[in-house]
Design a protein around this nucleic acid. Sequence first.
DNA 1: CGATATGTTGAAAAAAGTCAATGGCAGTGG
DNA 2: CCACTGCCATTGACTTTTTTCAACATATCG
Lengths: 245, 245
Amino acid sequence: MRHVKLQATWNGHRDCASCAMRSSALFSGLTEQDFALIQEPIDDLTFAEDAVVYHMGSPADAVFTLRSGLVKLVRYSPEGEGRIVRLLRPGDLLGLEAVAGERYDHTAISLTPAQVCKIPRTVIMRLNNETTRLLPRLFELWQSIVRKADAWTTDLGSSQVSAATRAARVLRKLRFEDDPSRIVRISLEDMGAILGMAPETASRALGVLKRDGVLQKGTTRKYWRCDPAALDAAAEGEKTAVDEA
Amino acid sequence: MRHVKLQATWNGHRDCASCAMRSSALFSGLTEQDFALIQEPIDDLTFAEDAVVYHMGSPADAVFTLRSGLVKLVRYSPEGEGRIVRLLRPGDLLGLEAVAGERYDHTAISLTPAQVCKIPRTVIMRLNNETTRLLPRLFELWQSIVRKADAWTTDLGSSQVSAATRAARVLRKLRFEDDPSRIVRISLEDMGAILGMAPETASRALGVLKRDGVLQKGTTRKYWRCDPAALDAAAEGEKTAVDEA
DNA sequence: CGATATGTTGAAAAAAGTCAATGGCAGTGG
DNA sequence: CCACTGCCATTGACTTTTTTCAACATATCG
């Protein structure tokens, strides 16, 4: 297993009212007066690649918004086997269970360098007491998490669908926002932990996509290249034109 | 595909304050005065086996509590393939997305005759406006749904775990509450839709459990019999004593 | 520049999918 | 009441996929 970094660097406090993330995340819908209710400081944190944002089972005292980077949520079985149950992208929330429960349900680990805002649960509680504008957003976010979890099962969890097709579906979740032909490269172990398959099988699945012209090596080991249209086709389970040649 | 019944029978209105389900479901934590705020009538409905409680994509205007019976939540892909993403038991909520969204995310179908209470979204909204005692419960419930969805992926979705073991884990979710040796019998198609495998594979997996002495035929086709301890062992991936003989 | 991690590939075994035939049970209609 | 019919469930035979174990290649980091 890869060495895991524990440290985050603190970039100071964040003014939520002027944050670029404001509209896509938790606090959209709040008014200027509402923001004044946020009395605690919101920490702005930077994590290196492979750093732990929080641990499964540890006391959940804050919710996080992901400002940049990519984060995996890992759920460990009692035997120590880990499965990745979600991939989080900029704008997504981490650790929403802090609002409802005692402890985190996953370990959150960065797949790339990541920037997150740490929002103490007390801030959420106060806002909920003082304004009605947070709640609908909270419901929506919770519901979208459920929807994503269900989609994870249905899209990635069927052995009637080929490993290559399911791998392509994962790759689509890993595309760079600004360049759909660039894909964040994750380890085969992680790919296996997402799809519930052995890393060798994941390697072979990616091999198929490469031979079909869907996927190429990137110039650095941090990412792959792809043909976006071919990737979409592969994710639907179709064979590519290259394959038929 | 099995014929699906569409009809529910109406058993009158329900007084939530005196409901046996009250403590395990949505309204635990409310006071007597809070119950007075429920002005709309709560319908008490009975569904036959294989009846649809609500359809995926239809407008979501009510949340349901399951009072008795067993319900599956099915998510259909655009191609019409259905996967079961959750099994609901008495005390569970159905259609919580009505509080957050416009439409139901699944089709809810009864696996046995089922009794449900239909709670209009407006009731939830009013209670949330008038009292602070509903919200924490709502958060908890939402979080427990996420946790169940994640457990579904990790417990049932790994091809490194044998089909028989995963089938045993499903069977554990189907046990009668009052008699842990009795298991609601579902079709092999449903078993396959839960585990993402072909129904023939599901049949063979159950065959293994039968040969190992974990599972037996019931006296009617509505249920199976099992050795509870052996089932637990099988769900952990262990071989039974019978098997070693 | 080498030590260690991760990725790739091969080969054999195990598991699962698929197609097809058979068997059993329940409900229907004579 | 019983044979008929239709729907599942079961099983067999075969194919394909995946796992597993192992060797080897490649890349990264000290």
